Simulated scan of single mutants.
Amino acid sequence: MYLADEAWPDLEAYFESETLAIVPLGSTEQHGPHLPLATDHLIAEAFATEVAERTGYLRTPTVTIGVSPHHRQFPGTAWVDPPAFRDYVESFVRNLTYHGIDRVVFVNAHGGNVQHLREVGRRLRDDDVAYAIEWMWDESIPDLVDEAFARNGPHAGPKETALIQHLRPELVHDDRFAEARDGGAPNPEESVRVRNGAATFYDAVENSDNGAFGDQTDANAETGAELFDAASDQLEELCEWLAARDWDELRAPERVSREG
Score class of each variant (00 low, 15 high):
26 G>Y: 15
27 S>A: 14
27 S>D: 02
30 Q>V: 12
31 H>S: 04
31 H>A: 03
35 L>P: 14
37 L>N: 13
37 L>E: 06
38 A>I: 08
40 D>A: 05
40 D>E: 11
41 H>C: 06
43 I>E: 03
44 A>G: 15
45 E>P: 07
49 T>G: 09
50 E>G: 04
53 E>K: 01
54 R>L: 08
55 T>Q: 11
55 T>L: 08
56 G>V: 08
57 Y>N: 10
58 L>F: 14
59 R>S: 15
59 R>L: 09
60 T>I: 03
62 T>C: 15
64 T>Q: 10
65 I>P: 15
65 I>L: 11
67 V>E: 01
71 H>I: 10
71 H>C: 06
72 R>G: 08
72 R>K: 13
75 P>L: 07
75 P>D: 14
77 T>H: 09
77 T>W: 14
78 A>K: 13
78 A>F: 13
82 P>S: 06
83 P>L: 00
83 P>K: 00
87 D>L: 06
88 Y>C: 05
91 S>P: 00
91 S>W: 04
92 F>K: 08
93 V>C: 09
95 N>A: 10
95 N>P: 06
98 Y>M: 12
98 Y>W: 09
102 D>C: 03
104 V>C: 03
104 V>R: 03
105 V>D: 11
106 F>R: 12
107 V>E: 04
108 N>M: 07
109 A>K: 07
109 A>N: 15
110 H>W: 07
110 H>L: 05
111 G>L: 03
112 G>P: 13
114 V>G: 13
119 E>R: 01
119 E>W: 01
120 V>T: 11
121 G>T: 03
123 R>F: 11
123 R>P: 05
123 R>K: 10
125 R>M: 00
125 R>P: 02
127 D>N: 14
128 D>N: 12
130 A>I: 02
134 E>W: 08
136 M>L: 14
137 W>V: 11
137 W>C: 06
138 D>S: 07
139 E>D: 14
141 I>R: 04
142 P>Q: 03
144 L>K: 10
145 V>D: 00
145 V>F: 01
146 D>N: 13
146 D>Q: 14
147 E>P: 11
149 F>D: 01
150 A>V: 10
151 R>K: 04
151 R>W: 15
155 H>M: 09
155 H>G: 10
156 A>F: 00
157 G>N: 09
157 G>R: 04
158 P>G: 02
159 K>L: 03
160 E>I: 01
160 E>H: 02
163 L>D: 01
163 L>G: 01
164 I>W: 06
164 I>A: 02
164 I>P: 00
165 Q>P: 04
